[in-house]
Amino acid sequence: MRDWKINKKSNFIHYCPNETIDSISINEEPNFSDKFVITDCSSNILSKKLILKIIV
């Protein structure tokens, strides 16, 4: 993820750590610091520890 090119103007990031159609799995812990992250964990929500910070 260090090499990802994320637009500095973006307001959020859509993150899917386990995409089942093309068998893509990201095992790194994300750190998007100043971005809101929308996460799709539907494929692996019960298979690994997930730490969430919810901002309301």
Rank of each mutant, 00 (worst) to 15 (best):
F36Y: 08
I38N: 08
S43Q: 01
T39H: 05
K5C: 09
C16R: 11
K48E: 14
N7L: 15
R2H: 12
D34L: 02
E19K: 00
S23M: 08
W4P: 07
L50G: 03
F32T: 04
W4R: 14
S33K: 07
E28D: 08
E28V: 15
W4L: 15
I24K: 06
K53Y: 02
K5S: 10
V56A: 02
F12E: 09
I6Y: 02
S42P: 00
R2Y: 14
K5E: 14
N27A: 15
M1R: 12
K49L: 07
Y15A: 05
Y15H: 10
D40V: 01
E28G: 13
S42E: 01
I26S: 08
L52Y: 04
K49E: 12
D3Y: 15
D40A: 01
P17M: 00
P30M: 02
I45M: 02
S42L: 02
D40P: 00
D22P: 06
K49A: 09
I38C: 07
S43R: 00
T20R: 13
V56L: 03
Y15T: 02
S43C: 01
F36S: 04
S47I: 07
N11A: 11
K9A: 10
I51W: 05
F32I: 06
I45T: 09
L52V: 11
E19V: 00
N11F: 05
E29H: 12
K5N: 11
S23R: 00
I21F: 08
S25C: 12
C16W: 06
E28T: 15
N7W: 08
F12A: 13
D40E: 09
E29N: 14
I55N: 02
V37F: 03
F32N: 06
D22L: 08
F32D: 01
S23W: 10
L50V: 15
F32K: 03
E19T: 00
K49M: 11
S47V: 09
H14Q: 11
C41V: 14
I54L: 07
E28R: 10
K49P: 04
K8G: 13
I51E: 06
N18E: 12
S47W: 04
L50M: 10
D3Q: 08
I38G: 07
M1W: 12
I51T: 06
F12G: 11
N18I: 03
L52K: 06
L46R: 10
I26Q: 07
Y15G: 09
D3S: 15
S33Y: 05
I6R: 05
K8R: 15
S25L: 12
I21N: 10
S43L: 03
K5V: 14
